[in-house]
């Protein structure tokens, strides 16, 4: 069963530093081509660790239902 929430990074603000990827206990974050972070929503458990360390404060935890 998937978690209720999942992390989402705002690409327009992400600095691609990789702090979130280093913090993620599930290895669900990938820094895509050095441009920004991309979270694997299926693997993400919504723990929020990435959002807590993001220096640009660009990660939000979204409700899964909200994703259309």
């Amino acid at each position: 069963m998937l978690s209720k929430r999942y992390a989402w990074a705002d690409r327009s603000r992400c600095v691609a530093c990789g702090a979130c990827a280093n913090e993620c206990p599930r290895g669900a974050v990938e820094i895509l081509h050095g441009c920004f972070a991309r979270m694997d929503a299926e693997r993400c458990v919504g723990c929020g660790k990435c959002a807590a360390v993001c220096p640009a404060d660009c990660i939000t935890l979204l409700e899964r239902e909200a994703r259309v």
């Binding site: 702090a19 441009c35 220096p55």
Partner: peptide, 30 residues
């Protein structure tokens, strides 16, 4: 602020992200 706040405006980080974006310009997924 947060531990790695420096990374959000580190000149090397800005420069390398800029280079990466330029390299990906017009390509999918970035």
């Amino acid at each position: 602020y947060r531990p790695r706040t420096w990374c959000s405006f580190c000149p090397m980080g800005t420069m390398t992200q800029g280079v990466c974006r330029l390299k990906r310009m017009g390509k999918d997924g970035a």
